[in-house]
Computed example of a mutant assay.
Amino acid sequence: MSSENATLHHRLPGDVTAVDLERLCWMLVAVALLADVVTTFVGLQVGLAESNPAARGAIEGYGVAGMLALKAFAVGIGLVGRLLLEPEYRPIVPVGLAVPWLAAAILNLYTISTVV
């Protein structure tokens, strides 16, 4: 028995394709990005400070536009990086963007709730 030319195909449950999953994950990125930006600026309005030095510099220098430019840069890097992956592994890129931004938004909400 030989394993030459053998391939392993991963199938997702149901009728979900890797393309569908990636599309859903990019929508999650948009929600996470928006949640992080909104909660960051609400936190700043109630007297909190940005703890990320790169984001702090972007906000202090350019306000919301600076924060959005920083996020757009991260998304751009992700879009370029995903081209290096096989299609079935591409959903990991938006997940890698969305998870920390969602975590930041949740932490922001918690911190805002302690001062309001």
Rank of each mutant, 00 (worst) to 15 (best):
M1P: 10
M1K: 10
S3N: 15
N5D: 14
A6P: 00
H10Y: 12
L12W: 07
L12D: 08
P13M: 05
T17D: 05
A18W: 09
V19D: 11
D20W: 03
D20C: 02
L21Y: 09
E22F: 00
R23T: 15
R23K: 14
R23Y: 04
L24I: 10
L24G: 04
L24Y: 02
L24H: 02
C25H: 02
W26I: 07
L28S: 13
L28N: 02
A32P: 09
L33N: 10
L34D: 13
D36K: 00
T39M: 06
T40M: 02
F41V: 11
F41G: 01
V42F: 00
G43W: 01
G43I: 11
Q45G: 08
Q45E: 13
V46M: 05
G47K: 11
L48H: 11
L48S: 08
A49P: 01
E50A: 04
S51Q: 15
N52Q: 12
P53A: 07
P53E: 12
P53R: 13
R56I: 02
G57A: 14
G57S: 13
A58P: 05
I59W: 07
I59S: 07
E60A: 14
Y62A: 15
V64W: 12
L68V: 14
A69R: 01
L70R: 06
K71A: 06
K71Q: 11
F73H: 10
A74G: 08
V75D: 05
G76V: 04
I77N: 04
I77Q: 10
G78K: 07
L79Y: 12
L79I: 11
V80N: 08
G81S: 11
L84Q: 05
E86H: 09
P87C: 06
P87A: 09
Y89A: 15
Y89S: 15
R90Y: 01
P91N: 01
P91D: 01
V93G: 02
V93L: 11
V95M: 10
L97S: 01
W101G: 00
W101T: 00
A104W: 01
A105D: 00
I106Y: 08
I106M: 09
N108M: 01
L109A: 07
L109Y: 00
I112T: 04
T114H: 04
V116Y: 04
